[in-house]
Amino acid sequence: MKPAPFIYHNPLTPEDAVSLLASNEEAKILAGGQSLMPMLNMRFVVPDHVIDLNNVTGIDGVTNRDNLLEIGAMTRQCDLMANDLVKSKAPIIPEALEHVGHFQTRNRCTIGGSLCHLDPAAELPCLMAAYDANLTVQGPEGQREIPFIEWPLAYMIPNLAPDELLTKISFRYWSLNHGFGFEEFARRHGDFAIVAVAALLEVDDGKITRAAISIGGANISPVRLVKAEEALIGMLANEDTYKVAADIAQEIESISDAYVTSQYRQRLAGTLVQRALVKAGDRVNRS
Protein backbone atom coordinates (compact mmCIF):
# COMPACT_ATOMS: atom_id res chain seq x y z
CA MET A 1 0.00 0.00 0.00
CA LYS A 2 2.48 2.60 -1.18
CA PRO A 3 1.39 5.40 -3.50
CA ALA A 4 2.42 5.28 -7.14
CA PRO A 5 5.10 7.84 -7.95
CA PHE A 6 4.04 11.43 -8.54
CA ILE A 7 5.57 14.86 -8.72
CA TYR A 8 4.98 16.94 -5.65
CA HIS A 9 4.23 20.66 -5.82
CA ASN A 10 4.23 23.04 -2.94
CA PRO A 11 2.61 26.33 -4.04
CA LEU A 12 2.44 29.28 -1.66
CA THR A 13 -0.48 31.22 -3.14
CA PRO A 14 -3.89 30.19 -4.50
CA GLU A 15 -2.90 31.64 -7.86
CA ASP A 16 0.17 29.40 -8.02
CA ALA A 17 -1.93 26.44 -7.04
CA VAL A 18 -4.41 27.19 -9.80
CA SER A 19 -1.74 27.64 -12.42
CA LEU A 20 -0.14 24.36 -11.37
CA LEU A 21 -3.55 22.72 -11.75
CA ALA A 22 -3.98 24.31 -15.14
CA SER A 23 -0.56 23.39 -16.45
CA ASN A 24 -0.41 19.79 -15.27
CA GLU A 25 -2.58 16.95 -16.47
CA GLU A 26 -3.71 14.41 -13.92
CA ALA A 27 -3.05 16.66 -10.96
CA LYS A 28 -4.64 16.21 -7.56
CA ILE A 29 -5.03 18.72 -4.76
CA LEU A 30 -3.77 17.58 -1.38
CA ALA A 31 -5.52 19.29 1.53
CA GLY A 32 -5.74 17.45 4.86
CA GLY A 33 -4.98 14.23 3.08
CA GLN A 34 -7.34 12.23 5.26
CA SER A 35 -9.27 11.01 2.25
CA LEU A 36 -6.78 11.46 -0.52
CA MET A 37 -3.85 9.73 1.19
CA PRO A 38 -5.72 6.46 1.81
CA MET A 39 -6.74 6.48 -1.84
CA LEU A 40 -3.15 7.15 -2.89
CA ASN A 41 -1.88 4.40 -0.60
CA MET A 42 -4.40 1.97 -2.04
CA ARG A 43 -3.64 3.20 -5.55
CA PHE A 44 -7.30 3.90 -6.17
CA VAL A 45 -6.09 7.33 -7.26
CA VAL A 46 -2.90 7.53 -9.28
CA PRO A 47 -2.17 11.17 -10.08
CA ASP A 48 0.95 12.33 -11.89
CA HIS A 49 1.06 15.49 -9.83
CA VAL A 50 0.13 16.24 -6.26
CA ILE A 51 -0.41 19.87 -5.40
CA ASP A 52 -0.17 20.47 -1.68
CA LEU A 53 -2.27 23.29 -0.29
CA ASN A 54 -0.83 23.13 3.19
CA ASN A 55 1.58 26.00 2.64
CA VAL A 56 -0.79 28.17 0.63
CA THR A 57 -1.55 31.36 2.50
CA GLY A 58 -4.81 33.19 2.75
CA ILE A 59 -7.23 30.29 2.41
CA ASP A 60 -7.80 29.37 5.99
CA GLY A 61 -9.44 30.86 9.04
CA VAL A 62 -12.90 32.10 9.90
CA THR A 63 -14.19 35.66 9.59
CA ASN A 64 -17.52 37.30 10.27
CA ARG A 65 -18.66 39.76 7.64
CA ASP A 66 -22.18 41.26 7.79
CA ASN A 67 -23.78 38.20 9.36
CA LEU A 68 -21.87 35.99 6.96
CA LEU A 69 -19.38 33.47 8.23
CA GLU A 70 -16.55 33.08 5.76
CA ILE A 71 -14.45 30.00 6.17
CA GLY A 72 -11.25 29.39 4.27
CA ALA A 73 -11.17 26.05 2.50
CA MET A 74 -8.01 24.99 4.33
CA THR A 75 -9.51 25.56 7.77
CA ARG A 76 -9.07 22.35 9.67
CA GLN A 77 -11.88 20.59 11.44
CA CYS A 78 -10.14 20.93 14.80
CA ASP A 79 -9.89 24.68 14.29
CA LEU A 80 -13.56 24.93 13.35
CA MET A 81 -14.43 23.16 16.57
CA ALA A 82 -12.31 25.49 18.65
CA ASN A 83 -13.22 28.70 16.85
CA ASP A 84 -15.20 31.16 18.99
CA LEU A 85 -17.08 32.65 16.05
CA VAL A 86 -18.19 29.25 14.89
CA LYS A 87 -19.09 28.19 18.41
CA SER A 88 -21.27 31.23 18.96
CA LYS A 89 -22.78 31.76 15.52
CA ALA A 90 -23.10 28.23 14.21
CA PRO A 91 -22.85 25.90 17.20
CA ILE A 92 -24.23 23.01 15.19
CA ILE A 93 -20.88 22.80 13.40
CA PRO A 94 -18.75 21.85 16.40
CA GLU A 95 -21.52 19.53 17.56
CA ALA A 96 -21.54 17.73 14.23
CA LEU A 97 -17.77 17.62 14.00
CA GLU A 98 -17.64 15.52 17.16
CA HIS A 99 -18.92 12.75 14.90
CA VAL A 100 -16.35 13.24 12.16
CA GLY A 101 -13.57 10.71 12.39
CA HIS A 102 -11.31 11.07 15.39
CA PHE A 103 -9.39 13.89 16.94
CA GLN A 104 -6.25 12.82 15.13
CA THR A 105 -7.95 12.99 11.73
CA ARG A 106 -9.71 16.23 12.62
CA ASN A 107 -6.29 17.72 13.28
CA ARG A 108 -5.65 17.43 9.54
CA CYS A 109 -9.00 17.33 7.73
CA THR A 110 -10.11 20.56 6.14
CA ILE A 111 -13.58 21.85 5.40
CA GLY A 112 -12.61 22.29 1.78
CA GLY A 113 -11.36 18.73 1.55
CA SER A 114 -14.58 17.44 2.97
CA LEU A 115 -16.70 19.46 0.55
CA CYS A 116 -14.60 18.46 -2.45
CA HIS A 117 -14.43 14.82 -1.46
CA LEU A 118 -18.21 15.00 -1.08
CA ASP A 119 -18.87 11.71 0.58
CA PRO A 120 -22.68 11.37 0.62
CA ALA A 121 -22.70 10.80 4.37
CA ALA A 122 -20.14 13.42 5.33
CA GLU A 123 -21.25 15.84 8.00
CA LEU A 124 -19.84 19.11 6.67
CA PRO A 125 -21.61 18.97 3.30
CA CYS A 126 -24.81 18.11 5.17
CA LEU A 127 -24.35 21.21 7.32
CA MET A 128 -23.49 23.42 4.39
CA ALA A 129 -26.65 22.25 2.70
CA ALA A 130 -28.62 23.27 5.77
CA TYR A 131 -27.05 26.72 5.65
CA ASP A 132 -27.44 27.17 1.88
CA ALA A 133 -23.75 27.98 1.86
CA ASN A 134 -21.99 29.57 -1.07
CA LEU A 135 -18.74 28.05 -2.26
CA THR A 136 -16.09 30.19 -3.85
CA VAL A 137 -13.85 28.51 -6.36
CA GLN A 138 -10.88 29.97 -8.10
CA GLY A 139 -9.80 29.05 -11.61
CA PRO A 140 -7.46 30.44 -14.22
CA GLU A 141 -10.19 32.88 -15.24
CA GLY A 142 -10.83 34.08 -11.71
CA GLN A 143 -13.43 33.28 -9.10
CA ARG A 144 -16.99 32.03 -9.24
CA GLU A 145 -19.52 31.42 -6.52
CA ILE A 146 -21.62 28.31 -6.38
CA PRO A 147 -24.64 27.86 -4.14
CA PHE A 148 -24.45 24.57 -2.29
CA ILE A 149 -27.45 23.18 -4.08
CA GLU A 150 -25.48 23.27 -7.31
CA TRP A 151 -22.31 21.93 -5.78
CA PRO A 152 -22.87 18.17 -6.03
CA LEU A 153 -23.04 17.09 -9.65
CA ALA A 154 -23.15 13.36 -9.08
CA TYR A 155 -22.02 10.76 -6.58
CA MET A 156 -18.90 12.26 -4.98
CA ILE A 157 -18.43 14.70 -7.84
CA PRO A 158 -18.42 18.40 -7.01
CA ASN A 159 -19.08 21.21 -9.44
CA LEU A 160 -15.40 21.88 -9.87
CA ALA A 161 -13.36 21.98 -13.07
CA PRO A 162 -10.00 20.16 -13.08
CA ASP A 163 -8.18 23.49 -12.93
CA GLU A 164 -10.30 24.96 -10.15
CA LEU A 165 -9.69 25.26 -6.48
CA LEU A 166 -12.22 25.66 -3.69
CA THR A 167 -11.03 28.60 -1.63
CA LYS A 168 -13.86 29.75 0.56
CA ILE A 169 -17.18 28.73 2.03
CA SER A 170 -19.58 31.35 3.29
CA PHE A 171 -23.05 31.29 4.74
CA ARG A 172 -25.43 33.54 6.58
CA TYR A 173 -25.74 32.40 10.15
CA TRP A 174 -29.04 32.18 11.94
CA SER A 175 -30.38 34.44 14.67
CA LEU A 176 -28.86 34.12 18.09
CA ASN A 177 -31.99 32.42 19.40
CA HIS A 178 -32.11 29.69 16.84
CA GLY A 179 -32.25 26.10 17.93
CA PHE A 180 -30.11 23.40 16.40
CA GLY A 181 -29.84 19.66 16.51
CA PHE A 182 -27.48 17.31 14.83
CA GLU A 183 -28.18 13.59 14.92
CA GLU A 184 -26.56 10.78 13.08
CA PHE A 185 -26.44 7.05 13.15
CA ALA A 186 -23.12 5.37 12.54
CA ARG A 187 -22.18 1.87 13.57
CA ARG A 188 -19.26 3.08 15.66
CA HIS A 189 -18.08 6.38 17.03
CA GLY A 190 -16.30 8.33 14.29
CA ASP A 191 -17.52 6.19 11.41
CA PHE A 192 -19.15 7.76 8.43
CA ALA A 193 -22.83 8.04 9.22
CA ILE A 194 -25.37 5.80 7.58
CA VAL A 195 -27.75 8.72 7.83
CA ALA A 196 -27.09 12.13 9.37
CA VAL A 197 -29.54 14.94 10.02
CA ALA A 198 -28.93 18.62 10.69
CA ALA A 199 -31.88 20.67 11.86
CA LEU A 200 -32.11 24.41 12.46
CA LEU A 201 -35.19 26.11 13.85
CA GLU A 202 -36.37 29.57 14.66
CA VAL A 203 -39.45 29.90 16.79
CA ASP A 204 -41.56 32.85 17.64
CA ASP A 205 -44.27 32.73 20.23
CA GLY A 206 -44.15 28.94 20.28
CA LYS A 207 -44.57 28.67 16.53
CA ILE A 208 -41.95 27.71 14.03
CA THR A 209 -40.97 30.61 11.81
CA ARG A 210 -38.03 29.16 10.00
CA ALA A 211 -36.70 25.63 9.56
CA ALA A 212 -33.88 23.90 7.75
CA ILE A 213 -33.57 20.13 7.70
CA SER A 214 -30.70 18.58 5.84
CA ILE A 215 -30.19 14.85 5.46
CA GLY A 216 -26.88 13.25 4.63
CA GLY A 217 -26.21 9.65 3.70
CA ALA A 218 -29.68 8.84 2.47
CA ASN A 219 -28.94 9.74 -1.09
CA ILE A 220 -25.86 10.35 -3.23
CA SER A 221 -25.52 13.84 -1.81
CA PRO A 222 -27.08 15.71 1.08
CA VAL A 223 -30.67 16.76 0.51
CA ARG A 224 -32.88 19.35 2.10
CA LEU A 225 -36.22 18.14 3.32
CA VAL A 226 -37.98 21.11 1.74
CA LYS A 227 -41.44 19.66 2.00
CA ALA A 228 -41.09 19.19 5.72
CA GLU A 229 -39.46 22.56 6.21
CA GLU A 230 -42.46 24.18 4.57
CA ALA A 231 -44.90 22.07 6.50
CA LEU A 232 -43.37 23.14 9.80
CA ILE A 233 -43.78 26.84 9.29
CA GLY A 234 -46.48 28.23 11.50
CA MET A 235 -46.86 25.04 13.48
CA LEU A 236 -46.27 24.69 17.20
CA ALA A 237 -42.76 23.59 18.07
CA ASN A 238 -43.63 20.30 19.70
CA GLU A 239 -43.16 16.58 19.20
CA ASP A 240 -46.35 16.09 17.24
CA THR A 241 -45.21 18.66 14.76
CA TYR A 242 -41.82 17.06 14.46
CA LYS A 243 -43.56 13.77 13.79
CA VAL A 244 -45.00 15.32 10.65
CA ALA A 245 -41.49 16.10 9.46
CA ALA A 246 -40.28 12.65 10.47
CA ASP A 247 -43.03 11.01 8.43
CA ILE A 248 -42.00 13.02 5.42
CA ALA A 249 -38.39 12.03 6.03
CA GLN A 250 -39.38 8.37 5.97
CA GLU A 251 -40.42 8.82 2.36
CA ILE A 252 -37.17 10.41 1.29
CA GLU A 253 -35.58 9.04 -1.84
CA SER A 254 -32.76 6.76 -0.72
CA ILE A 255 -30.02 4.54 -2.03
CA SER A 256 -29.16 0.92 -1.28
CA ASP A 257 -25.65 -0.45 -1.09
CA ALA A 258 -23.94 -3.68 -0.08
CA TYR A 259 -24.60 -3.02 3.58
CA VAL A 260 -27.78 -1.08 3.95
CA THR A 261 -31.09 -0.98 2.09
CA SER A 262 -32.90 2.18 1.05
CA GLN A 263 -35.79 1.24 3.36
CA TYR A 264 -33.47 1.20 6.35
CA ARG A 265 -32.06 4.58 5.36
CA GLN A 266 -35.58 5.95 5.16
CA ARG A 267 -36.42 4.51 8.52
CA LEU A 268 -33.31 6.11 10.02
CA ALA A 269 -34.10 9.41 8.36
CA GLY A 270 -37.46 9.38 10.13
CA THR A 271 -36.00 8.58 13.52
CA LEU A 272 -33.17 11.07 13.25
CA VAL A 273 -35.25 13.95 11.92
CA GLN A 274 -37.54 13.52 14.88
CA ARG A 275 -34.64 13.46 17.31
CA ALA A 276 -32.79 16.37 15.70
CA LEU A 277 -35.90 18.52 15.76
CA VAL A 278 -36.58 17.71 19.39
CA LYS A 279 -33.07 18.79 20.20
CA ALA A 280 -33.37 21.92 18.10
CA GLY A 281 -36.73 22.77 19.60
CA ASP A 282 -35.37 22.34 23.13
CA ARG A 283 -32.51 24.65 22.36
CA VAL A 284 -34.46 27.50 20.89
CA ASN A 285 -33.99 30.47 23.10
CA ARG A 286 -37.59 31.26 23.87
CA SER A 287 -36.98 34.05 26.30
Binding site: P38, R187, R188, H189, D191, A258, Y259
Partner: peptide, 16 residues
Amino acid sequence: PLTMNYGEYLLPLASE
Protein backbone atom coordinates in the same frame (compact mmCIF):
# COMPACT_ATOMS: atom_id res chain seq x y z
CA PRO B 1 -14.64 -9.19 -1.14
CA LEU B 2 -16.45 -5.97 -0.29
CA THR B 3 -15.41 -5.11 3.25
CA MET B 4 -11.85 -4.26 2.42
CA ASN B 5 -10.95 -1.54 4.86
CA TYR B 6 -11.46 -0.71 8.51
CA GLY B 7 -14.26 1.68 7.75
CA GLU B 8 -16.25 -1.20 6.28
CA TYR B 9 -14.99 -4.17 8.23
CA LEU B 10 -15.94 -3.13 11.73
CA LEU B 11 -13.58 -4.06 14.53
CA PRO B 12 -14.76 -3.31 18.04
CA LEU B 13 -13.60 0.11 19.26
CA ALA B 14 -13.17 1.44 22.77
CA SER B 15 -16.13 3.76 22.28
CA GLU B 16 -18.67 0.94 21.89
